[in-house]
Nucleic acid binder design. Sequence first.
DNA 1: GTCATGCGTGAAAGTTATTTCCGGGATTCG
DNA 2: CGAATCCCGGAAATAACTTTCACGCATGAC
Lengths: 307, 307
Amino acid sequence: MTQSVKEIFSGGDAPPAPAALAAKVRTLAPTMTRSMQLVAEAVAGDPAGCAALTVTGLAELTGTSEATVVRTARLLGYPGYRDLRLALAGLAAQQESGRAPAVTADIAVDDPIADVVAKLAYDEQQTLADTAAGLDTVQLGAVVSAATAARRIDIYGVGASSLVGLDLAQKLLRIGLIAHAHTDPHLAVTNAVQLRPGDVAIAITHSGSTGDAIEPLRVAFDRGATTVAITGRPDAPVSQYADHVLTTSTARESELRPAAMSSRTSQLLVVDCLFIGVAQRTYETAAPALSASYEALAHRHSPRNTR
Amino acid sequence: MTQSVKEIFSGGDAPPAPAALAAKVRTLAPTMTRSMQLVAEAVAGDPAGCAALTVTGLAELTGTSEATVVRTARLLGYPGYRDLRLALAGLAAQQESGRAPAVTADIAVDDPIADVVAKLAYDEQQTLADTAAGLDTVQLGAVVSAATAARRIDIYGVGASSLVGLDLAQKLLRIGLIAHAHTDPHLAVTNAVQLRPGDVAIAITHSGSTGDAIEPLRVAFDRGATTVAITGRPDAPVSQYADHVLTTSTARESELRPAAMSSRTSQLLVVDCLFIGVAQRTYETAAPALSASYEALAHRHSPRNTR
DNA sequence: GTCATGCGTGAAAGTTATTTCCGGGATTCG
DNA sequence: CGAATCCCGGAAATAACTTTCACGCATGAC
């Protein structure tokens, strides 16, 4: 399959020119005849624009003929105009992406929607990278082990963090573990009392000082359960009662972008890693459980309208 | 002189896709027919190689016909194969200069936990980039406008998507909008009946064929509300009843990494963009509302032990 | 079970773009 | 001043790309 593609590449013994096109034009300019220079100039001046033109178009633009355009392309080292055009497109794309990464700015009130999308995506990507880099894999491994062996897993989180807790519980349940996310602080405490050594309790709080998440964790800690804190502040109060602390990244926030947004991204990554870790350990039972739940849902989807 | 170049550019009103090609292929793959998939696969798999091929060449390589190649190019949003090829050349040049080729290795059962973290983070970053690239900002803008002006906003989603819906509702409520996420399909339909023109209904479903999310949207549609679908399958049944469709990226999934995971990342980005868009429009009221809710929560945090 | 319908598909015709060829005309050197 | 050279663009020839059309397969209806 791919070998035929490779053949084509090996066939062309002289790889034309990647980005050194402007330089080549300048070097060869004296060699060129008058009309060729016109073409070369146009090409070097606006690669993107020229890439959009056909031979005829470029000939008209420069006030020359198709033949001259082709001759110029040859002189620049390409087999023909077609290949020059391809290289031009590549060049255009490169310098397009080159000026792109200036999206580090904060999201402003008057940003057009397209900028919002770009900036937000960039920010979240950054958050993910930070989280992955800062995550203690030893701690994570320990939590995975504890969770895999646990009789039951209780998860505490309120506000935005509650959704992350629910997500984790949902996934763990899917592979046959007994997990429950408590969003009501009172019920959380009530349930925490039931825990005993070997059970796992997980508190999710970005600030690390959300009383409603700390309190049930403290109770679980006192009952001898293995306790875990997922927080952006490893030095915050919640860590006092945590056997293991998993740190989420504290990304910059702005007026329009509350901390809840990036902390959620970060928390979800941690939770996903935890889940996959557990799924690996319990693969024998997890895999069938996953496909079983998939099958069970199949009939709730209307028949595909296309194949 | 140069004006003819500009004309050509202004003429093409919708510049197709710069680097979002792989994403587009993945999003549209399910829509495609068998032989189109072959072509799309080849193109996504080896952009540089395919850029060097003519229509006939690519047709032979994939064992299909020229017509199919052209059809695929059209589906991907280009006027014809010529333009796809140009874009391909650009893409090739970009990833040539860009550092990371793509370490898309699947997560394996026996991967050490550190690898899991790295791969997962990378995958999610990819998902974010794909989603941002593939998101129709015009549609998004329209949805933002509708949401800003809406008397009430109802959100439907079940399963993993329900959490995304809850997240959106939570955030919109925070800036003073009347938003409600329904996770119970029966109650959702019951509530959808109450909607009227000017209201907004949003259905979140990755597959686009989840009956429990479609049904309330259909009801809302019939009542004259502005309806929105957030789905990974823009051609799925849910779009029938949607005035606006926001497409999430369909990332690759593996046995250990169910689709729910990456679709959630994608959905959250869309939802975040929507939220920020609305927050921008309603800045006068949103900003104070955000700080007010922050203040209100302050007393629920134990005193910070660090600054 | 049979027929009708629609859709995916590739072969081939048709169109456009690219390359090659050729002769006019300008420049320069003898 | 004349002749040789070579640049240059028009137009034919070729290659690439696009469109059309008809066949065959599958799906659903009767």
